[in-house]
Design a protein around this nucleic acid. Structure first.
Length: 298
DNA sequence: ATCATTTTAATCG
DNA sequence: CGATTAAAATGAT
């Protein structure tokens, strides 16, 4: 019988698809190593060793992964570089959107149109709603894409073996919704999200923001941060006219269900430190390093 | 009571 | 004095 087994995401076939996952896994190990030993000025050799590849492979790996040399990548992870990302951070938020928008906003470099949904409208944990989901390879590990009829509702990431745990984490947010696996239905979304060449204004990505007023305001602000830039939590607090709520902003940023698309990884501490990330600081570093490589490409 | 913050005060060398 | 911690302040869930 040729039934489509429901939980068969573990049978990953080798191929170009999974090259992405394998690449990220090595990158992840390299980053983890750097995080631990950055004080000791690790050599490329030491990094390669930690990632279980040769220095030559490491070089090639980074070029393929983000178009960056290992050296450039390392620099993209330094505190100095992070501070550079924060340059003019406050004004970045002002400039972006205030320039002639009418109707659906042009937000982010990944053109996104969003629609807010209060917890009230999403009554009782999403009871009666149907959410389609799928697991897809991405530059940052396995991505879990969750879509409602109105658009993209959730995006999560998982390391090898943790896919189900990550999915459970997402399910908790809309506990009473009905979940239907539909990998074919979500693969288009996944492709559009991670391939910068598909970031076009004529085909904006529809996103549904489900959260409280305050949270939605914070997430909308995040969407204004351009690729390769960053702001600190207090900048956001100022932008939403609640200057003393930087702490609350941090909490709200962390609750964003559509990570990466809503660029929560571009929010840093005031000093440039990566203060936290729901899917792991390592992944936040990876995203910033990857973006550093994408910016040059164009 | 918790939190992916920030500021200020206190301490150390 | 500069750098590194500790404590207090603060707003939303």
């Amino acid at each position: 019988m040729m039934n489509l087994a429901m939980n068969e995401h573990r049978l990953a076939k080798p191929g170009p698809q999974n090259a992405a996952l394998r690449d990220y896994d090595s990158v992840r190990r390299a980053i983890a190593f750097i995080s631990e030993h950055w004080r000791a000025q690790p050599t490329i050799e030491a990094m390669a060793d930690a990632a279980a590849v040769t220095p030559d492979e490491l070089h090639h790996l980074f070029r393929r992964w983000a178009g960056l040399t290992p050296k450039a990548f390392m620099q993209a992870l330094t505190l100095d570089h992070a501070k550079g990302l924060l340059r003019d951070s406050a004004s970045v938020l002002d400039a972006a959107l205030d320039s002639g928008l009418s109707g659906p906003s042009r937000l982010h470099d990944l053109f996104v149109t969003h629609e807010a949904m209060s917890p009230g409208e999403w009554k009782n944990g999403g009871a009666g709603m149907t959410l389609r989901y799928g697991f897809h390879p991405s530059p940052f590990g396995t991505a879990i894409v969750i879509a409602s009829g109105r658009g993209l509702a959730g995006l999560a990431f998982a390391d090898p073996g943790e896919e189900q745990a990550a999915f459970a984490d997402m399910k908790r947010r809309w506990a009473n919704a009905t979940y239907v696996e539909d990998r074919d239905g979500t693969s288009g979304l996944a492709q559009r999200i991670f391939d910068t060449r598909m970031w076009r204004a004529d085909q904006p990505l529809r996103v549904v923001l489900i959260g409280t007023d305050f949270e939605v305001r914070v997430w909308e602000t995040l969407l204004k941060i351009p690729m390769g830039r960053a702001v600190c939590y207090s900048d956001i607090a100022n932008k939403i006219k609640n200057p003393k709520a930087s702490r609350a902003v941090g909490a709200a940023v962390g609750r964003n269900p559509v990570s990466f698309v809503v660029p929560c990884h571009r929010a840093l501490g005031k000093g440039g430190a990566l203060t936290g990330y729901h899917w792991g600081i390592t992944r936040k570093q990876a995203m910033l390093g990857w973006e550093a490589g994408q910016v040059g490409v164009h």
